[in-house]
């Protein structure tokens, strides 16, 4: 066999499955048909491939029992079960069911631990609270001072203006001091 012929035969080896599948252009297929007529190597290769496929199919064909098949069909066509039931009792092999139960047990345990921890741990309050008594007391003090200022303003008409203004200014300052103390306490 010449090197050229060997090359062609190697090419057929690469395309033998496409040839079998009719997945080649008309020209290409025709070329191979002509080549197969005169090349023993390629025609026996094609034959061997077909024998391997057919023999395997023939020899390794198996089946399930008719009664089992009927049960399987029956199960396949029955209406969908409730999702919750399917979730609790999944279909599948025994191994998968065990795997599922294990997962469920782990998730359940973790969830229980989380709930117990959240219930037993006291929450610490980070916001400082001011007692109501303190608020009332400071409130009363400020109210009385405001009333004093109101009285002073009423007196302005009767009394010396400048004097009253100085007095008022002093009192305002005192009041500011008081209120500063109050807000930062």
């Amino acid at each position: 066999m010449s090197n050229d012929e060997k090359m062609i035969c190697k090419e057929f080896e690469n395309e033998v499955y496409l040839f079998m599948d009719n997945n080649l252009s008309m020209d290409r297929k025709e070329n191979w048909k002509q080549h197969l007529n005169k090349c023993k190597t390629c025609s026996s290769l094609l034959n061997e491939v077909e024998v391997v496929i057919n023999q395997t199919r023939e020899e390794l064909t198996d089946d399930i029992l008719e009664s089992k098949y009927d049960r399987m069909i029956e199960q396949a066509v029955q209406k969908k079960r409730f999702k919750i039931i399917e979730w609790l009792f999944p279909q599948g092999t025994v191994k998968e069911k065990y795997a599922f139960s294990l997962k469920l047990a782990v998730v359940g345990t973790l969830a229980t631990i989380a709930i117990v921890i959240s219930l037993t741990t006291q929450r610490t309050n980070t916001v400082k609270t001011i007692s109501n008594e303190l608020l009332d007391w400071e409130g009363k003090k400020i109210t009385s001072q405001i009333n004093e200022i109101k009285n002073t303003i009423n007196l302005i008409h009767e009394d010396n203006w400048d004097k009253q203004m100085i007095l008022l200014d002093q009192r305002m300052k005192n009041l500011e001091k008081e209120s500063d103390k109050f807000s930062f306490n």
Binding site: I64, M72, Q75
Partner: peptide
Amino acid sequence: EDLFQETL
């Protein structure tokens, strides 16, 4: 058989 059932 499991795979067959699931395919069905």
